[in-house]
Design a protein around this nucleic acid. Structure first.
Length: 423
RNA sequence: GGAGAAAUGGCAGAGUGGUCGAAUGCGGCAGUCUUGAAAACUGUUGAGGGUCACACCUCCGGGGGUUCGAAUCCCUCUUUCUCCGCCA
C-alpha cells in the first residue's frame, strides 16, 4: 500500500510511473487525495468535540468532589448534545477512512525507474543469459514422459488422491525433491540467511499484510471453517513475522530462508501451460526474504539475484534473467527479476524464480518499521525471491540432462541424492 | 472438547469509576565522573492521528455496551495458563 503523504507530495510522479503498468491512475490519485483531505477535516472536527466533552467531564468530577451536585447535574445535560454530534461524526469518519482504504488497496506499487514499459511478458527485458542449451538426441522426451519412463512422478495417482495438479513423487523422484530442498537451504544459509520452518496456513491479517487480500482472495485455498488460507508462497508467513514490528536500525539487514509447500488455485489456467510440472496446485519452494534499510534495498536485490545465479551455475542449467515490464510486474513489486530455465524438450523457458523489491509497499501494510538514526520510526524495505521453486527446476534437470542411459544428476546434487543417475 | 484463571508500555509489574498514557523496577538512550570501562549519579525513554510548530485527539488483547466520565463495570470474541478428557 502506498503512503498517502507520498502520493500527495509526488502526485505527478506517481501517475507517470504507474502509467508503465498501463494504468491511468490520475482519477484514483485525485480521489485518494480528496478523500484524505475530507478524512483529516472530519478528524479535526471530531477531535474538537471530544476535547470539549473531556473538559466538561473533568469539571463535573471536580464539582462532585467539592459537593456542588446541582452544578454538576447542570453540566451533565450539556454533554448529551456533544455526544450525539460526536457519534455522528465518528460514523462519518469511519466511513471516510474505509473509503480511503478501499482506494489505496486498489493502487499497485509504483514501478522503479528502470522498469521497462510494456503490456505483457513479451515486453520483458532480458538482461542476462548463461549456460549451454544441450543438443538432445532425436528421441528426447518432455519431462512428463521421462517421469513415467523412470517411474519417478505419478500424475494419475495424484489425480486419484486429490485432483489435477497434485503429483505424487516416488523413489528417486521423491529423493531428488528432498535433495533439492536440502541443497537450496544449505546454499541459502551459507549465504547468511537464517533458516525458518513456517506455518502452511495463515490468517486473514497475514494475507492482508503481504497483499494477497483483499484482492487476490481467489488465488488461495480458503479453509472457511477456521477462516485460514493455505499459503501460496512462504513469502506470506515469512514476511508476516515482521508485522507490527519496530526494529532497531542495527537489526538490519535481516535475511531468512524457508522451505514450504505452496498451494495455488490457479483458476483459469488450462491446456499446455498446465502439462506435467509446468503449473501445479501444490508445489515445493525454498524462499529467501530480506528486510532492509531503504538506502540498501537495491544493493540487496542485486545481491539476491547474484545468489540465485550462483545456484543455477552449480546446477549447470541454461537460464536467463528478465527484468519484468510494468504490465507483467506483480501488484506489490517495484522491481522484479525473473529467472527462467530452458526446458529443452519443450523448447521453452520456464520461470523458476522471481526476485523482487517491494520497497515500503508491504511494510506500510505490515507496519514494519525501524527506529532510524534520528530516533524516528521509518518503514523498512522488504524483498523476497525464490531460491528456488522446485517443479520447474526438476523439469529442467530431467529434460536437459537426459541421455540414452538415463538422467544425469548435476554434480552439486549428488551428495544430497546419493545417486548419480536416474535409470 | 469440559472446568477454572488471566491478558496493562521492550520486559517484569502496580493500578477496580474522575487530574492515568498509566506508579515502580529492569532494560534502552544521553550526560556527569573515569586514561578507558564498570559501578554510581542525573536526565530521558510507547504507538498512531493532527499542526509550520504547539494545542488537541485516539490507543491498557479485539469488538460492542453502561456512564457526564472506563485500564477499572457489563456482554462477546480471541489468545495464554492450570486441571480433566482425547491424541501424532
Amino acid at each position: 500500500m502506498l503512503q498517502v503523504p507520498f502520493i500527495r507530495e509526488n502526485k505527478e510522479e506517481v501517475i507517470k510511473r504507474l502509467a508503465k503498468r498501463n494504468i491511468d491512475a490520475s482519477e484514483m490519485i485525485e480521489n485518494v487525495i480528496s478523500a484524505d483531505e475530507e478524512r483529516r477535516s472530519l478528524q479535526a472536527n471530531l477531535d474538537n468535540i471530544l476535547a470539549d466533552s473531556n473538559a466538561i467531564s473533568k469539571e463535573i468530577g471536580l464539582l462532585f468532589k467539592s459537593g456542588q451536585v446541582d452544578k454538576a447535574n447542570e453540566l451533565k445535560a450539556k454533554t448529551s448534545e456533544l455526544k450525539e454530534t460526536s457519534k455522528q461524526l465518528n460514523d462519518k469518519l469511519n466511513q471516510k477512512v474505509q473509503e480511503l482504504n478501499d482506494l489505496l488497496y486498489k493502487i499497485p506499487n509504483v514501478p522503479n525507474d528502470i522498469v521497462p514499459a510494456g503490456n505483457s511478458d513479451t515486453d520483458n527485458e532480458e538482461v542476462f543469459r548463461e549456460g549451454d542449451i544441450p543438443q538432445l538426441s532425436e528421441n528426447a522426451l518432455p519431462h512428463w514422459e521421462l517421469a513415467k519412463k523412470y517411474d519417478i512422478i505419478d500424475f494419475e495417482l495424484g489425480n486419484k488422491i486429490t485432483g489435477a495438479g497434485f503429483p505424487v513423487y516416488k523413489g528417486k523422484g521423491a529423493r531428488l525433491q528432498r535433495a533439492l530442498i536440502a541443497y537450496f537451504l544449505d546454499k541459502n544459509t551459507e549465504a547468511g540467511y537464517t533458516e525458518y520452518q513456517l506455518p502452511h496456513l495463515v490468517n486473514e491479517a497475514s494475507g492482508f499484510g503481504t497483499g494477497q487480500l483483499p484482492d487476490k482472495e481467489g488465488q488461495m485455498y480458503h479453509v472457511t471453517e477456521d477462516n485460514l488460507y493455505l499459503i501460496p508462497t512462504a513469502e506470506v508467513p515469512g514476511t508476516n513475522i515482521f508485522r507490527d514490528v519496530i526494529l532497531n536500525e542495527t537489526d538490519l539487514p535481516i535475511g531468512i530462508t524457508g522451505y514450504t509447500p505452496c498451494f495455488r488455485r490457479e483458476a483459469g489456467s488450462y491446456g499446455a501451460h498446465v502439462r506435467g510440472l509446468n503449473r501445479l496446485h501444490q508445489f515445493d519452494k525454498v524462499e529467501i526474504l530480506r528486510v532492509e534499510h531503504p538506502s540498501k534495498s537495491y544493493d540487496a536485490l542485486d545481491n539476491m539475484v547474484n545468489h540465485v545465479k550462483g545456484i543455477l551455475q552449480e546446477l549447470e542449467l541454461p537460464y536467463r534473467i528478465l527484468r519484468l515490464c510494468g504490465g507483467d510486474l506483480g501488484f506489490t513489486s517495484a522491481l522484479t527479476y525473473d529467472f527462467e530455465v530452458f526446458s529443452t524438450a519443450q523448447e521453452k523457458w520456464l520461470e523458476i524464480s522471481s526476485v523482487s523489491n517491494f520497497e515500503t509497499f508491504q511494510a506500510n501494510r505490515l507496519k514494519l518499521r525501524f527506529k532510524n538514526s534520528e530516533g524516528k520510526n521509518e518503514l523498512a524495505h522488504t524483498l523476497n525471491g525464490s531460491s528456488l521453486a522446485l517443479p520447474r527446476v526438476l523439469a529442467g534437470i530431467l529434460e536437459n540432462n537426459q541421455t540414452d542411459n538415463g538422467i544425469m544428476i548435476p554434480k552439486a546434487l549428488i551428495p544430497y541424492t546419493g545417486f548419480e543417475m536416474i535409470d
